[in-house]
Amino acid sequence: MGILYGAAAGALWGTVFVAPALGSDFTGLQLAAGRYLVYGLVSALLLVPRWPQLRGWMEGTHRRALVGLSLLANIIYYVALATAVQWGGVAMASLVIGFLPVAVTVVGSRAAGAVPLPRLAPSLLFSAIAIVCIGGQALTGGGAFEWRRAAGFLCAVVALVSWTIYALRNARWLHRLPQVSAHDWNLLTGVVTGALSLLLVPAALYFDTATHSAGAWTRFAAISAGMAVFASILGNGLWNRMSRLLPLTLVGQMILFETLFALVYGFLWEWRMPSVAEWIAMACVGLSVVTCLHAHRR
């Protein structure tokens, strides 16, 4: 069930790589602010009947943890990711986020009871091959080096670091709080994220010099609502359920599903078939997960 939850979360999260392309006339700050304002509002509404039971255990330590996790997983991560997609393309962002399994797996291998790194070597090797296959194409776009794509690459690296830290800290907090359901923890994160996103609104409006039509704002609202409900509410909830069922080294490998689905959605958006290198990359993604599952067999 943990593996199925991880795959479903990846399928939902993969949509956020296409959303910046759909809303290319809006900035990454605006997309993040819109998405997380809706996320916070929906989370607050769903949390109302649950709040009397939850406030009994809430302490200052938990509130500070939720603020930190919200910044890492949502605000910092998605502002950087959306900017990376708009400046470098879906393949660029997918490539860099593809390093997440390697980063989380390597760091998670230090946890108590984790599978040792030597047993994970085949899985990490397949991950590395998948990343290298689309590396050159993602950085150059098939032509000469471009500074805008390089800046997008740096934004994607920021997203990578932010989400790696989040994945590890969030899994540890979920194990520390067995009395709190994964769904409630996600809703609490959503409320805090929504409050933090209010700080993005002034900057999002100030740095946008373009004039948008009523139709463009309607499309923006639909994109924000779609990302909030499908990626943040449903996707994060599935991810939290998975984080409780799987060890950290296997949690890292589940992020590969996000990369795989992001590539598939990107190909559909561009209405083209994958290149040979991209076929090899997707095959290696699947082999990476399979070999990691084999390493975790008792």
Rank of each mutant, 00 (worst) to 15 (best):
I3A: 12
Y5P: 03
G6V: 06
A9F: 03
A9P: 01
L12F: 15
T15L: 15
F17H: 06
L22R: 11
L22G: 07
A32T: 15
A33L: 07
Y36M: 06
Y36N: 02
L37F: 03
V38R: 05
L41C: 08
V42G: 04
S43E: 02
S43G: 01
L47I: 09
V48S: 05
P49K: 07
R50F: 00
R50P: 00
P52M: 06
R55N: 10
R55I: 09
M58Q: 09
T61I: 00
R63F: 12
R64C: 00
L66N: 04
L69V: 03
S70I: 03
L72F: 04
I76G: 02
Y78R: 01
V79T: 08
L81Y: 09
L81M: 15
A82K: 01
T83V: 10
V85A: 02
V85M: 03
W87Y: 13
W87E: 14
G89T: 13
V90E: 10
G98I: 06
G98Q: 06
G98P: 07
F99L: 15
F99H: 10
V102T: 13
V104T: 12
T105N: 02
R110H: 06
A111K: 11
G113K: 02
L117R: 01
A121V: 12
S123G: 14
S123W: 04
F126C: 12
S127V: 06
T140H: 12
G141R: 08
G142R: 13
G142C: 12
E146G: 07
R149N: 06
A151S: 11
A151E: 12
F153P: 06
C155T: 01
V157F: 03
L160Q: 02
L160S: 01
V161I: 15
Y166P: 02
A167Q: 13
L168P: 02
L174G: 09
A182S: 14
A182H: 00
V191L: 05
G194N: 01
A195I: 14
S197M: 07
L198R: 01
L199P: 03
L205C: 13
Y206G: 10
A210Q: 15
T211Q: 14
T211L: 12
I223D: 03
M227I: 11
V229T: 11
V229K: 08
I233P: 00
N236P: 00
N236Q: 12
N240E: 00
N240M: 05
N240Y: 08
R241Q: 13
L245W: 00
G252A: 08
G252V: 05
M254W: 04
I255R: 00
L256T: 09
F257H: 07
E258K: 04
F261G: 03
A262C: 11
V264A: 14
G266S: 11
L268D: 08
E270N: 14
W271V: 13
M273R: 14
M273E: 13
I280P: 02
I280H: 02
M282T: 08
L287M: 13
L287T: 08
L287E: 05
S288G: 10
S288D: 02
V289I: 15
H294M: 14
H294K: 15
